[in-house]
Amino acid sequence: MSTPEQSQYSPSPTVILESDKSTGAQPMELFIVDEHTEHYLTIQAGDESNRGLLTGILTGIGGIGGIGLGLLSFLQSGDLKELNIMLAMCTPMCVIPFLWETLRPLPLSILFNRRTREVYFDHDGELFHAPWDGIVAIANEFQIVGAQIGSIQNASLEIRVWKFEEPETALMISLGAPFGKSLALQKGFWEYIRSYMNNGPYFDEHGNHSESDTFVKSQLAIRPKMSDSFKETREEIKQAKREMGGKNYLSGHDVIKLILGAMFYPQDRIQEFTYSIAKRRSRNLWPSVVTERLKANGPTTRLVDLE
């Protein structure tokens, strides 16, 4: 793979990162790794983080709330009429948005295959790829300046891929949005990918191979999950109770957080479940030459070898 010329970029700091050379940075996950498995790693390529939110709101608040009211009315009166009405109203409210959000395909992730040592990318239904060995990434640092926002440091991280069976067509693809990232952060993320492809699937804080997944799990666990907020609030209250010896440990702020957390917990869990279903369905949209190479016993030939 030829090294892209730096002249095509602005005079701002531009760094060439290579697959076989360390940047000296510690591996760091930037909240965009979608799956980290033994054989492949995927990076979110589209802004679909809110997929499942509609289902979560309508089901977690409207559906469960409505059915709960109907059940309460039944327990009070013994009449199934109002419960049946609520079920008739709430069932479509839950099922329709769930089907709509899970049946619509998610944008396919950027996929790094350890077994075949190559990268896959889907662009409008067309398959692009690049061999990992010899690949380079361009890290370009720049600033956005505005009267209201001041100066914000940003850094992009891009690699080049080629269209399958049409190698004269190439794309530069971004490994995550550049906004709010520094050059140091992008170097750390490149080290995360490099460590996975060269020393993985598991590695330590220095990028060296490890039989333990402790460091990788610690990196992936940093990503915030909305459903974790209720658990974190409960842990904070328990900690306050221990520190205060059980006396006057519960503040009004804690009560509000606990009530709101309990109210929104079903919504957040349903959203995450809906997103996971949509993601699994979308994974099957890869062409067969890719899906068969994701299997543990699949072929190890690279797409460039097929060409």
Results as ranks from 00 to 15, higher is better:
W132Q: 01
P167Q: 09
F179E: 10
L87M: 06
L69F: 13
S22L: 05
A278K: 11
Q153G: 07
F215I: 05
I152M: 10
P4E: 00
R104Q: 15
T23R: 01
H36D: 04
V145F: 12
W190L: 01
I64M: 14
E232T: 14
G68F: 05
V136I: 11
E5D: 12
V304T: 14
M244Q: 11
L103S: 08
W132G: 01
H36F: 12
V33T: 10
L258Q: 07
G188M: 04
F264E: 04
R104A: 15
I277Y: 07
P97I: 10
I256W: 11
L285P: 00
Y265P: 10
L41D: 04
L103R: 07
D268W: 13
G246S: 00
V145Y: 14
N50K: 13
A177Q: 13
P97S: 03
K225G: 08
G63R: 06
I135N: 06
F142D: 01
Q267T: 15
N199I: 10
S7I: 11
W162A: 10
S218G: 15
S73D: 15
R281N: 12
L69V: 10
M263Y: 13
R269P: 14
E243I: 14
T37V: 11
F121I: 02
G52L: 07
D268V: 01
T274V: 07
V304E: 12
N84F: 11
S182R: 04
S229F: 05
C94P: 10
R114D: 00
S7F: 08
A184K: 09
M197T: 00
S151V: 14
T55D: 01
D204C: 09
T102D: 03
F74V: 04
P266A: 01
S12Y: 10
F189M: 07
D204A: 09
A177C: 08
Q76W: 12
P178G: 00
K21W: 04
L183V: 03
D305Q: 12
Q239P: 00
G125R: 06
N154K: 07
C90L: 01
G252N: 03
T3E: 08
L303V: 02
G78S: 04
R293E: 00
R280A: 14
Y192S: 02
I159P: 06
K257H: 13
F273K: 09
H36C: 06
S218W: 13
R293M: 07
L294S: 02
Y249N: 03
L54T: 13
Y249G: 06
Q186C: 08
V136W: 10
S195E: 04
A170Q: 13
L306V: 13
L41I: 05
A240S: 08
G68L: 01
G78Q: 00
G46E: 08
N198W: 05
P167E: 11
E18F: 08
T233I: 07
E307V: 09
A25Q: 09
L294F: 04
E82R: 12
R117Q: 15
L260K: 02
Y202D: 15
V255Y: 08
M244P: 10
V161H: 03
I64Y: 12
L250T: 02
M86T: 07
P299S: 00
R115C: 01
E82F: 15
E236P: 04
K225Y: 11
I193G: 00
M28L: 15
P107A: 08
T55C: 06
R302Y: 10
I193N: 00
A278Y: 11
G65I: 04
I85H: 03
E18P: 15
V119T: 05
